[in-house]
Design a protein around this nucleic acid. Sequence first.
DNA 1: ATATTCCCCTGGAAGC
DNA 2: TGCTTCCAGGGGAATA
Length: 284
Amino acid sequence: MTGNKRRMPELPEVETVMRGLVPHLVGRRITAVRATVDRLRLPVQAEILQRFSLRQQVVSLRRRAKFIVVQFGNHSGLLLHLGMTGAFRICPRNEPLRTHDRVVWSLDDGTDWRLTDARRFGSVQICPHLPPGADPPQLAHLGPEPLSDEFSPQYLHALTRGRAGPVKNLIMDQRRVVGVGNIYANEALFRARISPLRAGRRLGKASCIRLVAAIKTVLLDAIEAGGTTISDFRKVDGTEGDFRVEMRVYGKAGEPCPRCADGKRIRRRVQSGRSSFFCTGCQH
DNA sequence: ATATTCCCCTGGAAGC
DNA sequence: TGCTTCCAGGGGAATA
């Protein structure tokens, strides 16, 4: 079965990780950088990474989609992605490297900031020219943030017009709206009582209102739940925050629907190579 | 143009 | 027990 004991870093997790890093990184200066691999999902350009981050001071951090942007003081910065298994850790500089430590930034307070990523689906990119607050050019194609006012029922309705493809693919398309991964796409569609198989063009205005609200709610709930673990993150002992947002359908194939009175079973179906979980009784 | 498939990678679960 | 196979998913390239 599709268990998810370990939560993938979706938008709420990335937001929480970013917030947890702030007190450790902002104001710090980078004294050394090294990589233990040539590439993650993308090549890790160690020399360029060195050239642009050495002696730089971290001014701020922000999240865009599932990326973390680290702003340096000289209009440069880092663009980071955790992929499927990535995590950051702050630890003493003399701590031995762990198996999956991929990139290590040494900081001027004697600590190391390390990216650990077993499956190497993450990425570390340098942004040589990054004005404060600007989006790195690598992110130019991204759609609006799901929690912004720009992501409205009107917006969703407009972009579903003429779409034959399933609505689930649509809300996971980063060009339309960012940050909705497979897990929360399933959960949001369940909350909105919309089948993941439904064609985009068959979404009426009422459905768009429900779906936009469901996406925002499920993400906000998860951020709130993650927020309670930020103190854990700050313990810096490598333990991961455990999100306690209750999944209602994801990974629950065969279990009774938590909403249908007759207890119809949750179905699993593969859509574009990703598992969809839904109830045929209450999602249409 | 849109819609779908494939690939990167590893560890844990399931199967034999 | 131990080996093999399957499977998970983000994102972007490739393909139809």
